[in-house]
Structure formats: C-alpha cells, structure tokens
C-alpha cells in the first residue's frame, strides 16, 4: 500500500466511524450518557470535548499495551479486557487529579464528566474495535477521533431536537427518555442513507 492509498484509507476510517457507522446511532455505544445528557446543551458540549480527549488518549495507551506487551507475550486473548479497562480507569483518574491541580477552569468544565466517562462503553469499545481491525497506531487515532466526533455529532443533534421539543405537546407516554429514543430511531433511519457508501 503506498502513501496515497494509506491516506485514502485513513479518510475512509474517519468518515466511516464518524458518520456512516456512527458509533452511537448505528453501533449503539455510549448510549447511557448520550440519552442521559441530551436534555442540556451546555453539559453535552462539555461531555463531547471530554469524550474526544479521553477516547483519543485511551486509544493510544491501549494500542501501546496491545502491541508492545500483550501481543509479544501472547497474552492478548486472556489479559486484553482486564488490562484495557485498568488502563482507561487509571488514565481517567490521573487526568482528573492532574486537571484539578493544574487548571481549575478546565477541571470545572470537563471534570464533572470524567467519572462518567470511565464507565462509558464508547471508550472501551473503540479500543476493542481498533484491536479487532488490527489498526496501526495512526489508524487507531483516526478511528478514535472519528468515533468520538461521531458521538459528539449525534449528541449535539439530539440535544438540539430535544431543546426544541420542550415547547411541544409531547404525549405523557413518551415524555423524557422515551422521546429521546424515538428521536434517535428516526436519526438512525436518516443515517442509514449513508450506509454502504464505503464497502
């Protein structure tokens, strides 16, 4: 594969994870926070940034562990899950401590979402996807950016619609979380329009 093809390949990974196979709407990862946070514009923006940051960093860490430790020692199938979740958990903890000490403002903006992220299956999911597809480091980073951006896109679109629905006469039956799922259903339907764009 020459360099040009490689770049095209990266672009495909990016478009695929952010839009075509949107991590939330098509792959159903990160749903808890996606639905939970979608009634507040400000917290979804904060969460989006936090997720993008943590996903990218965790993917790098996970890749390093996968390729430098687990694969050489032939322990991938036994220790992968445990090591990935430990790495992500401790990374998030460290970031939280670091932010609190060094930049209180950033901590205020992002800090409250960090504990939520540790249990967000999106982050772990992306590391598994990278490993399953045997992505190299750059591909993993691109996948991580694409997937977390896809999360941000889906979340912000849902927030916009839910903000608008506050003024609507939504039936009691669907008030709250239920309508968020119904909106997501139609969003997923619309995203199907992109399906198959990349083999």
């Amino acid at each position: 594969m020459n360099f040009g093809e490689y770049l095209v390949d990266l672009a495909k990974i990016f478009v695929s994870s952010s839009i075509i196979n949107n991590i939330v709407l098509i792959q159903f990862l990160g749903l808890c926070s996606y639905i939970g946070l979608s009634d507040s514009m400000s917290s979804s923006i904060g969460m989006s940034f936090a997720v993008i940051f943590v996903t990218v960093c965790s993917s790098i860490l996970a890749w390093v562990i996968d390729h430098w430790i687990l694969i050489p020692s032939n322990l991938q199938s036994v220790l992968q899950i445990t090591s990935f979740i430990l790495v992500i958990g401790s990374f998030v903890g460290l970031v939280q401590i670091y932010l609190r000490k060094t930049s209180p403002n950033l901590h205020k903006a992002m800090g409250i979402y960090l504990p939520l992220i540790a249990t967000n299956c999106l982050i772990l999911g992306v590391t598994f996807i990278n490993s399953m597809n045997n992505y190299d480091l750059v591909q993993s980073i691109v996948e991580a950016i694409g997937a977390s951006l896809g999360y941000a896109i889906a979340l912000l679109l849902l927030v916009g619609i839910r903000e608008r629905l506050r003024d609507s006469d939504v039936p009691t039956f669907f008030k709250g979380k239920a309508i968020a799922f119904m909106v997501s259903a139609i969003m997923a339907l619309a995203f199907l329009g992109f399906q198959g764009m990349i083999r």
Binding site: F173, A178, I179, L192
Partner: peptide
C-alpha cells in the same frame, strides 16, 4: 427489514421505556 436495523432497536426501547415509565407514574 427495518426491524432488524438500528432504528427499530431505538424504537422498541423507546416504546418499552415509555410504557414502563407510564406504568410507574
């Protein structure tokens, strides 16, 4: 086909949660 595609997953859960929350209410 839509029933085995992603939208129907959201749809079913949406209706289910609506029903449960309604019941609890």
């Amino acid at each position: 086909i839509i029933m085995i595609l992603p939208p129907a997953g959201f749809l079913m859960i949406g209706i289910l949660i609506g029903a449960v929350e309604n019941y609890l209410r």
